[in-house]
Simulated assay, not measured.
Amino acid sequence: MNNLITTLYAVMDKGPLRALSLMMALALAGCVFWDPSRFAAKTSELEIWHGLLIIWAVCAGVIHGTGFRLRTPRWQGLFSPLIADLILLAGLLFFFF
């Protein structure tokens, strides 16, 4: 399992993918600040756990996008940039479409 996590993290450890992660994380954070009622659990179709996933994805995207390299597979798995980028993309698609 550690080899899989390390391999996936190494695949995502490229400059353009880091820039994409940072741009998507900052864009989604801006969208949440711009129209929080669209992401709120009481005023939209999103649930509480969707908000937690968005917060985690923004944090993981900023960590990955700024160039911070995690060393141990435990932290690489917890802040997986591949999963975070997919959630960031879904959040941006939800906001704009």
Results as ranks from 00 to 15, higher is better:
residue 9 Y to D: 05
residue 9 Y to P: 00
residue 9 Y to R: 04
residue 10 A to W: 02
residue 10 A to G: 06
residue 10 A to C: 05
residue 10 A to F: 03
residue 10 A to M: 05
residue 11 V to K: 03
residue 11 V to R: 03
residue 11 V to T: 09
residue 12 M to E: 11
residue 12 M to L: 07
residue 12 M to Q: 12
residue 13 D to M: 08
residue 14 K to R: 11
residue 14 K to D: 12
residue 14 K to P: 01
residue 14 K to G: 11
residue 15 G to H: 09
residue 15 G to S: 10
residue 15 G to V: 07
residue 15 G to K: 12
residue 15 G to Y: 08
residue 15 G to M: 08
residue 16 P to I: 09
residue 16 P to D: 09
residue 16 P to R: 04
residue 18 R to A: 15
residue 18 R to P: 02
residue 18 R to Y: 10
residue 19 A to F: 13
residue 19 A to W: 14
residue 19 A to T: 13
residue 20 L to W: 10
residue 20 L to N: 05
residue 20 L to M: 13
residue 21 S to K: 01
residue 21 S to D: 11
residue 21 S to E: 08
residue 21 S to H: 09
residue 21 S to L: 05
residue 21 S to T: 08
residue 21 S to R: 04
residue 22 L to T: 09
residue 22 L to D: 08
residue 23 M to D: 03
residue 24 M to L: 15
residue 24 M to G: 04
residue 25 A to H: 09
residue 25 A to Y: 08
residue 26 L to P: 05
residue 26 L to N: 06
residue 26 L to Q: 03
residue 26 L to F: 11
residue 27 A to R: 02
residue 27 A to L: 12
residue 27 A to Q: 03
residue 27 A to K: 03
residue 27 A to T: 15
residue 27 A to E: 04
residue 27 A to P: 00
residue 28 L to R: 02
residue 28 L to I: 07
residue 28 L to H: 06
residue 28 L to K: 03
residue 29 A to R: 01
residue 29 A to Y: 07
residue 30 G to A: 12
residue 30 G to F: 11
residue 31 C to F: 12
residue 31 C to N: 05
residue 31 C to L: 11
residue 32 V to T: 01
residue 32 V to R: 00
residue 33 F to V: 10
residue 33 F to C: 13
residue 33 F to E: 04
residue 33 F to H: 01
residue 33 F to I: 07
residue 34 W to M: 01
residue 34 W to Q: 00
residue 34 W to G: 00
residue 34 W to H: 08
residue 35 D to I: 11
residue 36 P to L: 04
residue 36 P to H: 02
residue 36 P to I: 04
residue 37 S to M: 07
residue 38 R to F: 12
residue 38 R to V: 11
residue 38 R to G: 04
residue 38 R to S: 09
residue 39 F to Q: 00
residue 40 A to E: 09
residue 40 A to F: 10
residue 41 A to V: 13
residue 42 K to M: 13
residue 42 K to E: 14
residue 42 K to G: 07
residue 42 K to H: 14
residue 42 K to I: 13
residue 44 S to D: 05
residue 45 E to I: 08
residue 45 E to L: 09
residue 47 E to P: 00
residue 47 E to D: 13
residue 47 E to W: 10
residue 48 I to D: 09
residue 48 I to S: 09
residue 48 I to A: 12
residue 48 I to F: 15
residue 49 W to H: 14
residue 49 W to K: 10
residue 50 H to S: 13
residue 50 H to M: 06
residue 50 H to Y: 14
residue 51 G to Q: 09
residue 51 G to F: 05
residue 52 L to G: 13
residue 52 L to I: 15
residue 53 L to S: 13
residue 53 L to R: 08
residue 54 I to F: 13
residue 54 I to V: 14
residue 55 I to S: 10
residue 55 I to G: 14
residue 56 W to K: 02
residue 57 A to E: 02
residue 57 A to R: 00
residue 57 A to K: 01
residue 58 V to I: 15
residue 58 V to H: 01
residue 58 V to R: 00
residue 58 V to G: 01
residue 58 V to M: 05
residue 60 A to R: 03
residue 60 A to Q: 03
residue 60 A to H: 04
residue 60 A to Y: 07
residue 60 A to P: 03
residue 62 V to H: 02
residue 62 V to F: 04
residue 62 V to P: 03
residue 62 V to N: 02
